[in-house]
Amino acid sequence: MSDPARQLEQLLAAERGRPDPSEAHAQRVWARVEGRLDGRVPAPTWAQSSTFVAWPWLLVGCGVIVTLALLGPLVRTRIITHDTQHKPQRIGLADFPT
């Protein structure tokens, strides 16, 4: 076995031999688990907080919708007025056969 392989095996053996927590330690945490399940003990702060913050995304989404709603008709008008093939013309009563 090469030196790094032997070294790694020693490290693994040391980690495999990590002792279990004491009975008193296990009892202490179990009391908190029971308390959590009964609703007597609150969750740790990090477990209470939501992992996804929605409001910035909602704000951005609303902004995009409003922008599109405002710019949409403007863009369409510009396309129509600059379209040489279909230039808007004045239409008077004279254009209609009586």
Binding site: H25, R28, V29, R32, V33, R36, L37, A43, P44, W46, A47
Partner: peptide, 13 residues
């Protein structure tokens, strides 16, 4: 570790 173990067993339950 204690908090994480606590949370893991609450989720498991």
């Amino acid at each position: 570790i204690d908090d994480i173990a606590q949370e893991a067993f609450v989720v498991a339950a």
